[in-house]
């Protein structure tokens, strides 16, 4: 969360939650908790700005192209990381992050009703496992808000899901878009989790020296692993 080599999102939620916990810690102190919170948030934003100016390049090499194709075409992905993977690539005229790539590919697979790939995410902290699901939920809801056709796609995808999963509750909610949105995403995440399509492991082994993505690790003749290396001076990452 606070690695000096990682970019953190300074959301209103983080800002207000940090203020809350700092106030609790400084309750008996004369120091103004609001001032301390603002100083911390200001430093976070300042670090992010530095990262933006240093890390304006986008990877275009054939290695990146091969990596993207392999991620999209994989049947099974296993990710080992202790922090956010900053890697970005170009899609059309937009920069897209590795996280966007995974979510977009998952959503596209659901929409086109192709067989979903399997994902295994490995994190060293239990808290990261919980925050992963929270983040995924938030990102999928964001997609629902920007792509109104997705709700109907998900509804049509329901037929791919086991009977009595969330078909009934979705049908009840279609009149109430906001409620349907939350429940569809909850149902979808439950489906992905309970069917082992997305597994999150709290793995305490020494596997986090650098973030890595194993592609088809279950296929001995079709497996490969990409490591995300980072320059010690330029804070750049590449696969």
């Amino acid at each position: 969360m606070l690695s000096d080599s990682a970019r953190r999102s300074v959301t209103t939620e983080l800002h207000e939650s940090l203020r809350t916990v700092i106030k609790d810690r400084l309750i008996a102190s004369e120091v103004n908790a609001d001032d301390i919170t603002e100083m911390i948030i200001s430093d976070f934003k300042s670090i992010n700005r530095k990262d933006d100016s240093i890390d304006s390049g986008v990877r275009k090499s054939h290695v990146v192209s091969g990596f993207l194709k392999e991620v999209i075409g994989a049947n099974y992905l296993s990710v080992f990381t202790s922090r956010e993977i900053l890697f970005q690539y170009e899609m059309g005229d937009k920069k897209v992050s590795f996280v966007d790539l995974l979510i977009r590919n998952l959503i596209d697979s659901i929409k086109s009703e192709v067989e979903l790939k399997y994902y295994r995410f490995n994190f060293p902290l239990e808290q990261t496992c919980e925050l992963f699901w929270r983040g995924l939920r938030k990102e999928v809801i964001k997609y629902l808000k920007t792509d109104t056709s997705l709700i109907s796609s998900l509804l049509s995808t329901v037929k791919l899901l086991p009977k009595n999963s969330f078909e009934n509750q979705v049908q009840e909610d279609v009149q109430d878009y906001g409620n349907a949105e939350n429940r569809i995403v909850s149902g979808l995440l439950n489906y992905l989790s309970s069917n082992g399509i997305i597994n999150v492991f709290h793995l305490e082994g020494p596997a986090y020296l650098v973030p890595s993505v194993a592609i088809n690790p279950n296929e001995s003749n079709n497996a490969c692993t990409y490591l995300f290396l980072q320059s010690s001076t330029r804070r750049r990452e590449f696969a």
Partner: peptide, 18 residues
Amino acid sequence: SSYYQDNDDSIEYTRLLV
């Protein structure tokens, strides 16, 4: 806190310990 773990149902999802 907005991150209070009872504010969502993430705990119900898979969280396997290896």
